[in-house]
C-alpha cells in the first residue's frame, strides 16, 4: 500500500518537474524571439543604408531620405533606451513607410527596374520586411503558446506554486489604436 502511494507521489513530482521545465523553455523562447525582432530591426537599418546609397545614383531620390532614416533610427534607439515602447514602435513603423516609398520609386524608373542589381535590391527589400514581420509573428506565437500552457489546467496550479519563476505577463507586439485606424484608412494613390 505504501509503495503504491510512494510511486504515485514520485510520478506526481516528475509531472510537476516536467511542467516546470516546459514553461521555462517557453519563457526563454519568448525572450529569444523578442530579441530576434531587434536583430531584424538592426539588419533592416543596415540594408536600408546601402539601398539608399544605390538608389541615389539613379535619381535625386531624396538625399534627405537617408537623413530621415538616420534620424528615425536615432529616435527609435533613444525611446527604446528610455523604455518608451510606443515611441520606439512609432519610429520603426515610420521607417517601414519610407521603404514602401522606395518600392514605388523602383516601379517608376524602368532603367532602374531593368538593372539586375536593382532587382536584387528589391528582392532584398521584400525579404527584409518579411523577416521583420515574421520575427514579430514568431514572437506573438511564442507568447500564445506560453499563455495557453500557463493558463490550462494542472499547469496553472504548478504556476501558482512557483509564480515568481513561471508567471510572466508578456505583451503581444501590436500597433496602437490610432495607428490601426490610420493603416485601415490608408489607400494607395496612383
Amino acid at each position: 500500500m505504501w509503495i503504491v502511494i510512494l510511486i504515485l507521489l514520485i510520478a506526481l513530482g516528475a509531472y510537476i518537474v516536467m511542467i516546470y521545465n516546459q514553461l521555462i523553455r517557453m519563457i526563454e523562447a519568448v525572450n529569444n524571439n523578442e530579441k530576434e525582432i531587434d536583430i531584424q530591426l538592426d539588419r533592416r537599418y543596415k540594408v536600408f543604408e546601402s539601398l539608399i546609397n544605390v538608389v541615389r545614383k539613379y535619381m535625386d531620390y531624396e538625399k534627405s531620405t537617408l537623413k530621415d532614416v538616420v534620424a528615425l533610427r536615432n529616435q527609435a534607439q533613444q525611446s527604446k533606451a528610455s523604455g518608451d515602447v510606443k515611441g520606439h514602435m512609432g519610429a520603426e513603423n515610420k521607417i517601414s513607410s519610407i521603404l514602401s516609398g522606395l518600392n514605388v520609386v523602383f516601379e517608376n524608373y524602368p532603367d532602374l527596374k531593368a538593372n539586375q542589381n536593382a532587382m536584387q535590391l528589391q528582392e532584398e527589400i521584400v525579404s527584409t520586411e518579411n523577416k521583420l514581420a515574421y520575427a514579430k509573428q514568431a514572437f506573438n506565437d511564442s507568447i500564445e503558446r506560453y499563455n495557453a500552457t500557463k493558463k490550462s489546467f494542472f499547469q496553472s496550479m504548478v504556476v501558482s506554486l512557483f509564480s515568481g519563476k513561471l508567471d510572466f505577463k508578456f505583451t503581444y507586439w501590436q500597433l496602437d489604436q490610432d495607428k490601426i485606424q490610420e493603416q485601415e484608412d490608408y489607400k494607395v494613390e496612383l
Binding site: A29, N33, E123, S127, N130, Y134, A135, A138, S142
Partner: peptide, 19 residues
Amino acid sequence: DHDEQQLYNVIEEMKVAAG
C-alpha cells in the same frame, strides 16, 4: 543568380517565422 538568392531568402524568412 537572383532566383537562388530569392530561394535562400524565402527559406531564411520561414526559419525566422518558425523560430
